[in-house]
Design a protein around this nucleic acid. Structure first.
Lengths: 157, 157
DNA sequence: TATTGTTATACTCTATAACTATA
DNA sequence: TATAGTTATAGAGTATAACAATA
């Protein structure tokens, strides 16, 4: 409730001291977004040394664990539109982290592969990300973190 | 593991049949983002009839429950930068959902208030959002939803 | 001197249309 | 006829700098 005198709804002049977000906090979507932004903030700070943004790491990591993956498969897995993937791949390629090779059967497609350098960077980045995740969610126990992930996956799987 | 023959790492030609996202799925941030995007998708569909995007509803709802809230307070609560709030408020104002009145003590500030029309729309929208949330997370039990929200809030609170 | 709200503007992210080469 | 990858471009979202009015 507002803290000040409400003369009449039409001409009320109120002052808010503590902001009430009770309704928004009942929403899974609101809470999930707030939590993800909170973690992404830490991610961005710690991964800047590698020159990797969230989407860059996702791409690097996906190729690391799926040698020969095609652009179309990456787009489907990460919810990226094909035109927007082009420059992401291009940047990693120019950094010599990734190479594109023709698909063995489909002449239209290109398979994505990490270079030795890309594999090394991904290995380092995975360590940093795993550590940063623990820190960004350090108010959760290991069991709670496990439960949280399971429940989140039930939503989008 | 790749499904095809790896001749030698340097010239490997692989084909990916099922994409492996195991590492990404161990991350709270990845899962929270995927889940929130999944819910926002349903939100966007169902709230389009009201002409409200996620941020519009958040603003409308915040003012509904905090009559007289200032722009600064809204920005701090919703992580919006002041310049970006201006047009959001302007649109709701032009739709006669919201009015701005001078702050009683601070001549620089403006208090935000919903009109009767704005309050009516918010009440309707709250119903729709609550229903849509259940549908978008219908693989969760009520207890799981409660647990999920509690864990998410432990991350960002 | 600091803060609220604002304008202007730049940068990033996301989305759409259309082209090419292959299937 | 459909699909993979690409180009160009438009739109939405997010960011910084600077200003006027007020504290």
């Amino acid at each position: 409730m507002p803290s000040a005198k409400t003369l009449s709804p039409a001409v009320a002049i109120d002052i808010v001291d503590a902001v009430n977000t009770d309704f928004l906090r009942t929403l899974v979507g609101y809470n999930a977004r707030r939590a993800s932004l909170s973690i992404i903030e830490v991610f961005t700070e710690r991964m800047a040394v590698y020159g990797l943004k969230v989407v860059d790491f996702s791409l690097l990591n996906l190729v690391a664990h799926n040698a020969g993956i095609t652009s179309r498969q990456v787009c489907a897995s990460l919810n990226i539109l094909p035109p927007n993937l082009v420059s992401l791949v291009g940047v990693l390629e120019k950094r010599s982290l990734l190479v594109r090779r023709p698909h063995p059967y489909d002449g239209r497609a290109m398979g994505l592969y990490l270079t030795e350098e890309g594999q090394a960077l991904n290995a380092q980045a995975e360590q940093t990300v795993s550590a940063l995740e623990i820190d960004a969610t350090d108010r959760l126990t290991a069991q709670e973190r496990k439960t949280l992930i399971r429940l989140l996956q039930k939503i989008y799987d």
